[in-house]
Structure formats: C-alpha cells, structure tokens
Design a protein around this nucleic acid. Structure first.
Lengths: 191, 191
DNA sequence: ACCTGAACACCGTTCAAGT
DNA sequence: ACCTGAACACCGTTCAAGT
C-alpha cells in the first residue's frame, strides 16, 4: 500500500467517516452520490478510492471483522469449548446485524470467493479460520454435533442476524438461541 | 371487486404474467418500468393496476400463500403433529425461497402489519393462522418445545429460506434441519 | 374508465479536462 | 497524482392529456 498524498488521505478518511454514518442509517444500499456529497468531494473521488461498493463496505467493516478474529482467540483461551463457540457466534450476529443489508452481503461474499475486494477477502478468511478452530474444538469436546460444517454454521448466523433489522433484535436473539440448541442436539434425528 | 373492462382485464393479466417471470429472474427489486415495457403497456397502466410494488408482489404470490393454508389443513389431517409441522415449514421455506428477496419482504410484511396491500395481508393472515394451529398441535403433543411462538418460528423459516439464493439450496436445507432439531429440543438449556 | 408518456428528481458509473 | 463534474443510461412515481 503506497503512501497517499495528504489531500488524498484526508478525502479517503472523510469518505470513510461519512460512509460509516450514512450506511448505518440507510443500509448497504445507500446512495454513493449522497455519501460523496456529504463528504464534500466529487463522485469521481469516491470511485477513485473505492472502485466498487463492496470495496467501500470492506473498508468500513474491516476493523470489526478483525476484532472478531481476536475475540475468537480470546474466548478459546478463557472459556469451555461449547461456551466459547456460542459466545462468539452471538458476537458475530450482533456485529453483522449492525448495518442493514450486511448479512446478505456477507452471505454472498463468503460463498462466492470471487466477489468482494481482495483485502476484505483475506480479512474475512482470517476470521473464518478463527471460527473454524472454535467449532472444531467444540465438536472435539462433543459440545456440538459433528455433522455440521463451519460454513453452514456461519451462513446460518448471518441469515438469522438479518432478522434484527426487519423484525427487531429480540426475535433475532430468540431464533438464534433455538438454532444454537439445534447445534447442541445429537443431529440426524430423522430418517 | 367490481368488474373490469375487457381491455383492462387483459392488461392486468398480461402484467401479472410478465411480472411473475421477470421477478422470478431478477428478484423482487426488478424494474417496474421493464415489466410494463415487456407487457406492452405504459408505465402508468402498471401503476393504475398495482399502486405499489407490494400490491404487485401480493397479486403474484397470493395463490402460493393460499395453497400453503390448504396444505396445512391437509397435513394436519394426515400426519403426526410434529411431522406435519416440519413438513409444512419445509414447504413454506421452498415457496418463499422461489423469488429472490421475497423472504426479506415477508419478514417485514408479517411483522409490520401496516405494510403490504390489504388483500395480501388477510391472505397471509389465513396462512399464519393455519400454521399457528399446526404449531399448537405439535406443542400439545410435546413434539416441539413449548417456549416458542409461531411468529418466531415463521420469521426463522423466512430468514433461513433466504439463504437459498445467496449460498445455494443445499446449505439452506441443512440449516433448516438444524433449526428444526432446535425446535424439537427441550429448550431453556442455558442459564 | 382506462391508457399513455412526458416530466421530475433521483440513481450508478465512466471519463475527459483540469490542477 | 489526484480531483471534478458533465454525460450517459437507467430508475420510481405522478399527472395532464387523450380515447
């Protein structure tokens, strides 16, 4: 990442600040034109710094995603395997649910590894790896059924966290609780 | 519902036919202008028949929703309580998952009873009532934990059915299976 | 009663022209 | 190196004018 000229740096930072606020209010489909306008730069400047909407989104949530990786390591060191996984998934749900529409983007981004900007993809990769270890540990401890994949668990949590913005946070939490109970169950109950 | 003039009737039917196809291909956010164009009518005609996007959506899925009500009665008469509920929820997931973006719309429409057009709201109300009876029966039979609400179960299924269009149908089915196991579990496992 | 399409106020995205 | 904004091809929605 080469150094940026001072004015470019300022523009980038302002853009990110404004985008964070606007997207928090309006969701991931917020108008890019509006963001540029509020940041006091031309629309072309926004596109120069963030060639695609996903690149902008990646820059916005990169920090949060990295924090989730760190949190996984923390929990793994301080909690019982099953507890650590559940706590972490709850954190994931809360963080992803922050921006309206982000759960959907995450579902796509995680599944179709072509999509999204490269930086975000490796950041997400790190976080997914951290989660994968948490799940493996919980499964080794028989705290979680053996027949689930980390990818499946992740997309479940992403999908459920999208409820928060359409039906309120409480239903989302309750649905997640039931899903976690399902993870704890033996699995393969039905013929 | 007063009679429609013959040309109006034709326009309405053609609009619905085209909309069904376009929305199946492009999702619920498909361009209304495009639908009017392909149906060979002016954009104003589309708005005259369907004053809002949700009214159009309602007309499109009304049949499917009604079929779900009927299916609930069927299953209730022919299957064990727990089985009937699970089969029905699986049907719901498949039907809602047909149109990209529909799960999100359903989540909003079901929760915020102001939204959506009136006809659809009563149709959905009927279907929800049929589902509610199925859940009550399963709970009375101790096939499903007593601490869940039908609304919670429904939004869970809607949220999960949205996975199909972002990560493929197989993961969606697996996630739903785990959630159903959670429904079958005792509940209130954690402090 | 019903249909049409121009009109308005917005988008996303690109790119020549400027500094 | 970086910024700007006009230009293009689209939207959703309304409403006067037509039949």
């Amino acid at each position: 990442m080469p150094e940026l000229r001072a004015d470019a740096r300022r523009n980038r930072d302002e853009l990110l600040d404004v985008a964070r606020q606007v997207i928090r209010e309006e969701g991931v489909d917020a108008s890019l034109r509006d963001i540029a306008r509020r940041a006091g730069v031309g629309i072309g400047t926004l596109y120069r710094h963030f060639p695609t909407r996903e690149a902008l989104l990646g820059a916005i949530i990169g920090d949060g995603v990295r924090r989730l990786s760190a949190r996984a390591a923390d929990l793994s060191a301080t909690r019982a395997p099953g507890e650590a996984l559940e706590e972490w998934l709850t954190d994931v749900a809360r963080r992803i649910g922050t921006y309206r529409g982000l759960p959907g983007t995450m579902l796509e981004l995680v599944w179709d590894l072509e999509a999204g900007d490269k930086d975000l993809r490796v950041t997400c990769g790190d976080m997914m790896d951290a989660g994968r270890r948490l799940l493996a540990r919980a499964q080794a401890d028989h705290a979680v059924r053996p027949d689930v994949t980390f990818d499946d668990v992740f997309i479940a949590v992403a999908a459920i966290s999208g409820i928060a913005h359409k039906s309120g946070p409480d239903p989302a939490a309750r649905v997640l609780a039931v899903y976690l109970d399902g993870l704890r169950s033996a699995g393969a109950t039905r013929s």
